[in-house]
Amino acid sequence: MANIKIPSPLLKLTNNESEVEISGSNVKELLTNLEAAHPGFNERLYDESGSLRRFINIYVNEEDIRFLDGENTEVKDSDEVSIIPAIAGGK
């Protein structure tokens, strides 16, 4: 089970749990299982064409998946996966 860190704006989807344990062998599978366990993530993370929104950054152990293998990036048990918007407001 990987540990997914949830950004503040989406905490209401996880009953205010800032970290959730989800199984999956890669990022895509992990996010599919996250949606099944806590519905509402997909519409916020993906656009109409099914691509991750441009401002959503996913990190596996602090590495941006854009610079790894995208959503096919492998995830192992105990890995930390963070969902981070480009920035969440304020000047």
Binding site: P7, P9, L10, R44, R53, R54, F55, I56, P85, A86, I87, A88, G89, G90, K91
Partner: peptide, 18 residues
């Protein structure tokens, strides 16, 4: 304002959730 709490508009606040 951004139309959602999770957004990528650096510098802008979604007031209802901030």
């Amino acid at each position: 304002q951004p139309d959602a709490s999770l957004h990528g508009l650096e510098g802008m606040k979604h007031m209802a959730s901030s």
